[in-house]
Design a protein around this nucleic acid. Structure first.
Lengths: 151, 151
DNA sequence: TTATCAGTGTTGTATATACAACAGGAGCAG
DNA sequence: CTGCTCCTGTTGTATATACAACACTGATAA
């Protein structure tokens, strides 16, 4: 394998790699939301957890991970940060290891306060991606739903 | 803002958030490639850098960051890992801070060796996303091209 | 009852990412 | 030449992510 041959493979890689494109997309979109949410001291990732808890009321860490397709260690560490910030509370459940999470009033106020800014980020993302792009993201998400490992 | 009102906002968030969907997509796709590349001891992110260097021959760290839309600190730390692994070499450029990067024979061999596995990952990703999905990723990538901050 | 196993959550380690702070050199104005 | 600014790259800190290793509990088999 000489340099020229390697360069030919590299050309194909650079022009075709799906992972590269998805990763760039992820960085741009995540930064867009995180920058809007920064004044609230929360990330879009944590906001996703906060929204889910606002929606379902109570949930265990494992359920959050499964529902949001997040690795359990990521969930574990985020819940601890959110608890320290007073946005959620952790109660021991009925059975041994069960830990029941719920949103505190402070967490609910935070969610209500950041919601308009999230809408702004949504609008900015929609402008960036276009209507077809927004639909495409929805379709792609459905395609990978149920694919994630990790419990 | 009572619980019910918060839950209504959360419902919209959960069903509409673009960032959430893009992030799940990113995790699934990145894992797919990383698991295939794991036996080679390289990540898909580093493989992107390796491919670019195979393509252009020589480049400075800053150029890599701009080309691949990666933050300069991410590039800096990855280059150091790749150098330690013997895949790239760093030479002092003509002017002061200039650092010229190039692929070593070992790095070229690695790229040639992992290329078939990358093709397998590409095929698996294409199956997962469908033809329309692959096109959509391309379109979305074009939409965000040139959007990234960071130099 | 006891031993094993499955499910759940935490912690360790490594990479990826972003932003801020910093360091070193280049180029320019004076 | 001196000082200022810009460009470039590294390092510090924090979050996100994945996988492995543990710990603990509950359930089940013997």
């Amino acid at each position: 394998m000489n340099k020229k041959q390697a360069a030919e493979l590299a050309q194909t890689f650079a022009s075709d790699c799906i992972a590269y494109r998805v990763r760039v997309l992820n960085r741009v979109i995540t930064n867009l939301y995180d920058s809007v949410l920064k004044p609230f001291g929360i990330t879009v990732n944590q906001t996703t957890i906060l929204a889910m808890l606002n929606l379902v009321g109570k949930a265990r860490p494992g359920k959050i991970g499964k529902q949001l397709h997040m690795e359990k260690s990521t969930v574990s560490r985020n819940l601890e940060r959110m608890r320290k910030n007073g946005w959620i509370q952790v109660a021991d459940g009925d059975s041994g290891t069960a830990r029941i999470l719920s949103v505190t009033p402070k967490g609910r106020r935070l969610f209500a306060a950041l919601y308009p800014e999230w809408e702004n980020a949504q609008a900015a993302a929609a402008r960036l991606l276009g209507d077809a792009g927004v639909d495409a993201v929805q379709t792609l998400h459905e395609a990978v739903e149920g694919t994630t490992r990790s419990s």
